[in-house]
Design a protein around this nucleic acid. Sequence first.
DNA 1: CACTCTTACGGCACCCGTAAGAATC
DNA 2: GATTCTTACGGGTGCCGTAAGAGTG
Lengths: 299, 299
Amino acid sequence: MTLKQLEAFYWAASAASFGVAAERLHVSQSTLSKRIAELEAQLRKDLFDRSGHRAMLTEAGEQLLPLARRMLGLADEMRTLVAEGGGVRGHCRFGVGELAALTWLPDFVAFVRATYPDLVLEPQVDLGAALEQRLESGELDFAVVAGYSSRSAIASEAIAEVRFSWAASPALVGAQRVITAKLLQDTALITMPAAAGPTRMLEHWLAVNNLEAGRRLTCNNLAAIAGLIAAGVGIGLFPNGWLKQMAERGSVVELRSRPALPALEYTIQWRRDDSRPLLQKIREAVRETVDFSKPSPLW
Amino acid sequence: MTLKQLEAFYWAASAASFGVAAERLHVSQSTLSKRIAELEAQLRKDLFDRSGHRAMLTEAGEQLLPLARRMLGLADEMRTLVAEGGGVRGHCRFGVGELAALTWLPDFVAFVRATYPDLVLEPQVDLGAALEQRLESGELDFAVVAGYSSRSAIASEAIAEVRFSWAASPALVGAQRVITAKLLQDTALITMPAAAGPTRMLEHWLAVNNLEAGRRLTCNNLAAIAGLIAAGVGIGLFPNGWLKQMAERGSVVELRSRPALPALEYTIQWRRDDSRPLLQKIREAVRETVDFSKPSPLW
DNA sequence: CACTCTTACGGCACCCGTAAGAATC
DNA sequence: GATTCTTACGGGTGCCGTAAGAGTG
C-alpha cells in the first residue's frame, strides 16, 4: 500500500471519472487505473464496481474513502509542518471569469509567484457555470466567479462587490448622458454570453425595470466588447474602474441610469472536501490581492 | 513521500537504533538508512541529528513523529477495515519466559496458527528482564513474563497467577514432606538464574522467613532443572501442575512449606506506542489460551 | 460510435542488499 | 576497536506512458 495508490483511489472516487482524476494528478489514465488495481490487489478487495459504464465505489470503497482522505490530509500536514516557507508547492489549477481575468488575475499571479515560488499556477478563463462544473468534477482547485454556487459540494466565500456603469462612445450618444427606453431600443446592447455574471445581472435589471433592449450583440471576450463599445458599435456595461480610466481619455462616456445597476458579488469557490493547506493559503492570497476595479494593464 | 519512508522513520525514531528498526521491518540497515535519508530529502529537513555516535531526533523529527504514528495507524486501520478474516497478517516476534515456553507456548502457537494462518510467529525464550529490554528496544512485539514492567513505555496486563510447590526426589528426602531450615541447609537448592521470576519470588520468600539455602545450583534451563530434581540432585520449585503429574508417576514428591509460597503473577507486556490491531488480536489470543499449569507435553 | 476503463509491452528509474567507508565513543 | 550510520555499486523489479483492447450505453 502506497500513498500514490491511496491518492489515486481518493481522487478517482471523488472526481467525475478516472480520466479527470488522472489529469489532476498529472499521470496518465492507465497509470491511475493501475494504481487503483494494485491497491485493490493489496487489500484483496474491490474498491470500484466496474460492471457499469463508469466505475462506481463499492461498499468497501465507501468505507475506505474517509480513511484515505484523512491519510492524505495527514501527509499534507506533514509537508507543511516541516516546510518553513509556508510549504505551498505543486500545481494549482483554477478558473476565473473574464472580468477577473482582465483585472485581478495579473496581480494575483504576481503575488502568488512571489509568495510561493514553488507553486505552479494554471489559470483557465471561462464562464462561471462551466468553471463550477469543472470544479465539482475535480478538474479545478478553485474558481473566482460571480455569485454563489448552488451546488452542495462547493463552498463559496464572498470576496468583492463589483459595480458597473453604462458606457458608450461619445460619437454614438452625442450629448445624451442618461439611459432611456428609447436609447436601449435604438442602439445595440453589447454583452457577454447570457450565462456570464454581469449579463445575468443586467438581464435581471432590465426585467425589473420593464425595459427591453433592441439589437443584441453577444461576445465571449470582454476585451473585445470594450473595444466594440469604444468604437461606437453599441452601449454596454463597464466595471466602474475601467470606465473612469477610459472616460478620462475621452474614448467613452458614462451613462447614468435610474435606478442604478446593482452591485455584482464575486466569490471564491472550492470543493468542500478539499481541505488542503494549499487551499487555505490560496484563499488568503485571493483576499489579499482582490481588486476588480483596477483597469486592465492592456489599455 | 512514501509509507515505507514514514514507517522507517517511525521505527528508527522509536526503536533503540537504526539496526533494530531495520531488523523489525525485515530490511537491511542500509535500506532503512536510505529510506530515512530520502524522506529527509523529500521534506528538505533533517529528521535526525547524526553528529553523535547514535542518531538523535531533531526538533522537526520530534514534531513529525506523532503524525507518522497516526499515519501508520491509519494504514493499519485500512487494512483491517477491508480484511474479512480479522486481517492479522505478517510477522510477530515475541518473548516468553522458560515456564511459559514449556507450558503455554505450544497451545498458544497452535491457536494462533489456526486462527490467523497468515501470521508468522517468532517466539524467543529468555529471562523476563532481557525480554523487557528487547521489547523496549523494538525487537519484540510483546512478551509474556513474570511480574509487571517498571518501564513507563511498556504496558503490562495480568493474565495468570501461577502457584509453585517444593519438589524433591523421594530418594533424596526419604519420608520427609516438609521444608525445614535444616533441609534447606543440607540439600542443594536448584533454581533458575537470579533474574528469573520464580527465583526472585523464592529469594523474597526465603528472606521474609529468615531462611537460608545451603548449596545453590543455578541452571538457565527449566527442563534441565526438572530433570535434576527428579534425579535427586537437590530440591526446587515446580509449578503445581507439573508437580501433580510427576508426583503421580512417583518421580518426585511434594514438600509442604509454612508459610506457603506466594503466587507468581504473569503478565503480557507490550509497547504502549504500539496500537496495531495485530496486538489487540494477539492479546485476545493470549487470554484465550493462557494456562501455565499444564504440564509440558515432553514428560 | 463515443466514452470509460483495462491490458500489453517496452523502457527507464528507482529501490534493494552487499560491502566498504567514515565517524564517534 | 567496536558500534553505528552512510556511501558506492550492481542487479532486479516495479512503475510509467503509449497504444491497443474490451465493454457499456
